[in-house]
Amino acid sequence: MFNEFLEKLFSWKSDNNSRDQVKRRLKLVLGHDRTGLSPQDLEEMRKEIVEVISRYVELDTEELVFSIENNERSSALIANLPIRRVKNEEKSEQVENEENLENEVKEIQLENEEKIENEVKEIQTENEEKIENEVKEIQTENDN
């Protein structure tokens, strides 16, 4: 009761009076009239545009504003699509993969090199040992 009283007493201050309401409704309906777009068409267009943009960025779906506004007898499509974040997970995955690959390659290379070195060393030492042994054997034979 008291609230109602205050509302009536200060009605000229409220911006939800019938004058503002009629202006809002008119602007909206004229936007559709002037472009020849029905609210259904606009909704369809909204969906498609959001779909395309969503391929690149993640949109804040609750804060989307999509409307037709008029200024001096020309109409404009006003879209406010707040971006939650840029979609870069896929890219970073690729980068990680590439890095992984590189590392793997390096590791394999390193491993291989080591192996080869080791093998070479082993062969070398083996050969050396063999030669030494042979030399020793020949020496003892000669001695005998």
């Binding site: 009605s11 000229w12 409220s14 009076n17 004058r19 202006k23």
Partner: peptide, 19 residues
Amino acid sequence: MVQANNMMSVQDVQEILAI
């Protein structure tokens, strides 16, 4: 009625129709 914010003013109508 305009003063009581219950009717669009001439300016309101003119702004919307833009002529």
